[in-house]
């Protein structure tokens, strides 16, 4: 939701794209719209990410000084495979923006925005932990939620859920079915200690 202060027009993706294109000519900037895309979204490319992030943070019209969240997305089988979405919040103008970057599978690397928003430290570690996307320039990139020696990137679409089969009579080998003789299935009368 982008509620605004009285008098200012609500933030739109086109406005942000326009300002970004005039400030960074040649950068690939694309507003993301769609029927059920309920937030303001801008897609940028990875090479100018840090500059664009700094601009969005410092520019008086936007002032996105608060990085709320970073989410990794796996779009298997689409190419490029991964996407990293930065959820930005402007406290001064009461607006939200989703900044999106596509990351290819062969080289899953992105520049880190820790210098722009220090809170990105743990968010990027979490995205690395789940998807294996490396953030260059991150001071301490290692696993955060899973054990340090875990192998694999669990939230990728080709990683399994790790579901353990629950043992029922139909899938446990060698298990005998209970006798159909109902008297033997009668519940045993239990006497409790304190009578």
């Amino acid at each position: 939701m982008s509620a605004t202060l009285a008098g200012t027009a609500p933030l739109t993706a086109e406005r942000v794209a326009e300002r970004l294109r005039e400030k960074f000519p040649g950068a690939a900037v694309r507003p993301v719209t769609g029927e059920a895309m309920r937030d303001v979204g801008i897609e940028v490319s990875a090479d100018r990410l840090v500059e664009i992030a700094t601009f969005l943070r410092d520019e008086r019209e936007f002032e996105f000084a608060f990085l709320s969240w970073i989410a990794g997305v796996d779009w298997l089988p689409a190419e490029p495979r991964f996407e990293v979405v930065y959820g930005l919040l402007s406290l001064a103008h009461n607006a939200r923006l989703n900044l999106r970057v596509r990351v290819p599978e062969e080289n899953p690397r992105l520049p880190s925005v820790v210098a722009v928003w220090p809170t990105a430290n743990w968010h990027e570690r979490e995205t690395y932990d789940f998807y294996g996307i490396e953030f260059t320039g991150h001071p301490d990139l290692r696993r955060i939620l899973l054990p340090e020696d875990w192998v694999g990137w669990p939230l990728r679409k080709d990683s399994p859920l790790g579901y353990e089969e629950v043992a029922f009579t139909h899938n446990t080998p060698g298990r005998r079915l209970p006798s159909p003789d109902l008297t033997r299935l009668k519940p045993k009368k239990v006497t409790y200690r304190a009578q």
Binding site: M1, G34, E35, A36, M37, R38, D39, N98
Partner: peptide
Amino acid sequence: FPPKGEAYQA
């Protein structure tokens, strides 16, 4: 069946 899209709500 929700529509194809995204939403963030806090």
